[in-house]
Structures are given as C-alpha cells and as structure tokens.
C-alpha cells in the first residue's frame, strides 16, 4: 500500500477544514453547552451524596475528554457511507487507484486532526474554568494518555464505517447507528465504567464501546501504568478488529453491487 497518496488526501482535507473553519462554530457552541449542563448536573449529584472513584473535578475533566473523543472528533463517516452507497456514487470510486475504506479514513483524518486541536483547546479552557486543574496531573503522562485518545477515535471511526457499509445489504440501517451510539454513550461517554453495576462492568471491559471514550478519559484524569497496560492492548485489539470488520463488510458489500450505468 503506497501511503503517500493517502497523506496527500489527509493534507487536502486538513486544508479544507482550515478554509471552512467557521462551520465548526455550531459544534463548539454545542460542546460548551454540553459541558455547562453536565457541570451543573454533576455538581448537583455530588451535593446529594458520595460518588465512588471520581472527585467532582475529575468528573468534569472526564466529561471534557469523552466529549472531545466522541463529539469533537466525530467524522460523519456513517452518513457518508450511507450516502455513497444509497446514491450509487460509490460506483465512481471503486475503480480509482486507492482503497475506498482507507481513502475514507485518510480523508476524515484531516478534519479529525483539526477538530482534535480546536476542541482540545476548548476542552482545556472549559475544564480549567469550571473545575480547575486536575489533582495529581503530570504532563509527562499526557503523551501516553493521548495515544489512548487517538486509538479511541480510530476504533469509533472504523466501527461507524462498518455500520455505514451495512447500507450495501440493508435498506434501513439507522437503528444500528443509534444502538451503537447509545452503547458508547452509556458505557463510557456519560457514565464512567466504575459507576456501572459490577456484573455490567466486567462485561463492558470485554466489549469495544468503553474503549472509545472511557479508557482515554480515565487515563487523562487518573493516569496509572497499570491502567495504561490494561487498556492499550485492548484498544489495539479493537482497532484491528474494527478495521478488519470494515474491510470485510466492504468486500462483502461490493460483491453485491449491481451497476446500471447512468
């Protein structure tokens, strides 16, 4: 696989994101609103009683990071796949000198990098204003936590791509998207795994959903090497599985294509 052409695709998509940066304003407003609402909600919850495993400051930062991974670095890949398959425009991309799945990834990568930077800055500002510095935070650990952030974004991308590619074989696949999204929300993004009932915790740690948002956020707010070596191998496994699933779904889907000209 010659990588140079994919890097050019990423560079162009990054240039596009920079050129159309005003389109990010709505997302930034929503990101701020989400953090504002949840800051008030969790403050009220912490007033009501003890919450195990996280201080309020850690909880606010936890939400800033999960929101950064899931919302800030979202790619729209699910709807892109759906549009390409349902409109038939995918037919024009099949005979181009790149692999469709990797083209979509590198095309989205530019935008995701742009979002990671601007939403990352906003997350830090909001976290500092609403909660103050994270207790015990060490900058030296940040690069390792960022590895987990990137792996979380990649897992999310390829699972969404797999679901989007089901459009090849299914007429209506939006319900799958909603179910996946809610599993990511409830098994990490809104609720840390530590808050789940014990029986559900043990199941969640074997599933991919918590490794999208919970693992990176936990590493940022309460880094430990034990946790790092526990979650990074699992994230790598899910990265490989999600890429293989999207490639498999693509190959299976392309076999069923019927082109009628036009």
């Amino acid at each position: 696989m010659k990588l140079r052409k994919y890097f050019i695709v990423t560079r162009i998509s990054l240039q596009n994101s920079l050129a159309y940066r005003s389109s990010a304003i709505g997302g930034l407003l929503f990101f701020s609103l989400f953090i504002f609402v949840f800051f008030h909600l969790w403050r009220a919850i912490y007033k009501g009683g003890e919450v195990t495993g996280y201080s309020l400051t850690q909880m606010i930062w936890y939400l800033c990071i999960t929101e950064l991974v899931v919302f800030g670095c979202r790619s729209g890949v699910f709807s892109q796949m759906n549009d390409d398959v349902k409109s038939g425009s995918i037919a024009y991309q099949l005979n181009r000198p790149y692999h469709y799945v990797f083209f979509q990834f590198f095309n989205a990568l530019g935008n995701m990098v742009f979002n990671l930077v601007i939403y990352g800055i906003l997350a830090i500002i909001l976290g500092l204003i609403m909660a103050g510095p994270i207790p015990g935070f060490r900058f030296a650990n940040l690069p390792f936590a960022l590895i987990s952030v990137v792996l979380g974004i990649v897992i999310n991308f390829f699972f969404l791509m797999t679901l989007g590619l089901t459009a090849f074989r299914l007429e209506e696949n939006f319900a799958f998207y909603l179910i996946y999204q809610k599993l990511v929300f409830m098994l990490g993004m809104f609720i840390p795994v530590e808050f789940l009932p014990r029986w559900l915790q043990s199941i969640a740690l074997y599933l991919p959903f918590s490794y999208v948002a919970w693992a990176p956020a936990r590493l940022v707010v309460a880094f430990s090497w034990d946790l790092f070596w526990q979650v990074i191998p699992m994230q790598l496994v899910w990265v490989i599985v999600s890429i293989l699933m999207s490639l498999g779904m693509y190959t299976y889907g392309v076999k069923g294509i019927q082109a009628h000209g036009g």
Partner: peptide, 15 residues
C-alpha cells in the same frame, strides 16, 4: 439507564 445509574450513586434527589 443514565438516570438509574445517577440516582443509584446517591440514592436521593438530584436538583
């Protein structure tokens, strides 16, 4: 489910 977890954490009223 989110609210069930939130209330089960403190077992009282929220806001």
């Amino acid at each position: 489910f989110f609210w069930y977890i939130a209330f089960s954490q403190i077992g009282g009223r929220i806001g």
